[in-house]
C-alpha cells in the first residue's frame, strides 16, 4: 500500500471493506453452522446416552465460548468500521487539501510578481526581502507538518487494515471448521469424533488468532509513542515563532 500523496485511499479502504465483508459473511456461517451442529446433536441425543451427551455438551460449550470471544471483537470492530474509514480518508485529505495547496504557495512567496521588483533597493527593499523569506520558511514548515500528520494517520490506518484482515482470517477459519463439522456430524459414531476435532481446532485457532490481534493492536498503541513526535512537531517553533505564523506586520 502506497502512503498518502502517492497512493489512493482505495488501496486501504478496499482491503479494509473486503475484510469486513468476509467478517460479516463468516460470522453468519459460523453461527448458522453451530446451530446446525447443535440441532444434529439434539436429534441424536436419545441414542448417544447421558455420559456421551454430557461430554459433547461440554465440548460444544467450549466452542460457543471461543465463538463468543471472537463475536465480541467483531461487534466492536463493526461499530468502528465507518468511523475508521473517515480516518483513512482524512489521512489522504491532509495531503490533498493541505500539503499540496500550501506547497504550491511556497514558490510565489519569494518570486517577484513583477520582474522590475529587482530594481527596488535600499532599506525598505531589504526589509521586505527578509520578511518574504520568513514567510516562505513558515509556508515550507506548514507543508512539512501537513505531511507529518498525514503519515501519522497513515500508520494508524495501516494497523486498522491489518487488524481487519486478521480478524477476517479468524472468522473465516472458524466458520469453515464449524460448517465442516456440522456437515460431517451424521450419527452416533460421527458426532463425538466431529465434536472433539472441532473443539481442539477452534481452541487453537482462536487462541493464536487473538494473539495476532494483540500484536497488531500493540502497533496501534505504539503509535501513541509517536505522540511525542507529534508534540515535537507542534512545539518546534523555529520557523513558527511561539507556535504562531511569523508576524510580517505588527498588530
Amino acid at each position: 500500500m502506497a502512503p498518502p500523496g502517492i497512493g489512493d485511499p482505495a488501496e486501504y479502504t478496499g482491503p479494509f471493506n473486503t475484510a469486513f465483508n468476509q467478517i460479516r459473511d463468516g460470522i453468519k456461517k459460523a453461527v448458522d453452522g453451530f446451530n446446525d451442529l447443535v440441532s444434529k446433536v439434539n436429534k441424536w441425543a436419545w441414542a448417544l446416552g447421558a455420559a456421551a451427551l454430557w461430554w459433547i455438551k461440554s465440548k460444544l460449550d467450549a466452542v460457543r465460548d471461543a465463538l463468543g470471544k471472537v463475536l465480541e471483537k467483531v461487534k466492536y470492530a463493526l461499530e468502528h468500521q465507518t468511523p475508521v474509514l473517515s480516518l483513512i480518508n482524512i489521512s489522504f485529505q491532509w495531503v490533498k487539501q493541505v500539503k499540496t495547496p500550501v506547497s504550491e504557495l511556497s514558490f510565489s512567496t519569494t518570486e517577484p510578481r513583477d520582474e522590475d521588483l529587482v530594481r527596488w533597493s535600499g532599506d525598505a527593499a531589504s526589509a521586505y526581502t527578509r520578511k518574504a523569506g520568513q514567510q516562505k520558511a513558515a509556508v515550507d514548515e506548514a507543508v512539512g507538518k501537513a505531511e507529518f500528520i498525514s503519515q501519522w494517520l497513515f500508520k494508524i490506518a495501516k494497523a486498522n487494515v491489518d487488524f481487519a484482515v486478521e480478524l477476517a482470517k479468524i472468522v473465516t477459519g472458524l466458520a469453515k471448521r464449524i460448517v465442516e463439522a456440522a456437515a460431517e456430524a451424521g450419527g452416533v459414531i460421527t458426532i463425538p469424533l466431529v465434536v472433539e476435532t472441532l473443539g481442539d481446532a477452534v481452541g487453537s485457532l482462536v487462541e493464536s488468532g487473538l494473539n495476532t490481534l494483540l500484536t497488531v493492536g500493540q502497533r496501534f498503541v505504539d503509535a501513541l509513542g509517536n505522540i511525542r513526535d507529534l508534540a515535537t512537531q507542534v512545539g518546534d517553533h523555529s520557523k513558527l515563532p511561539g507556535g504562531k505564523w511569523p508576524e510580517a506586520v505588527r498588530g
Binding site: H80, Q81, L87, Q93, N160, F220, L230
Partner: peptide, 22 residues
C-alpha cells in the same frame, strides 16, 4: 478534518491519547 475518538481503531484499545493528540 475532524476525527471522532471512535475513528482511531477498530480494536478495543484506548484511543483517548491518539484522539487528543490529533
Amino acid at each position: 478534518l475532524d476525527l471522532s475518538m471512535s475513528a482511531f481503531f477498530i480494536g478495543d484499545a484506548n484511543a483517548g491519547g491518539h484522539s487528543a493528540a490529533y
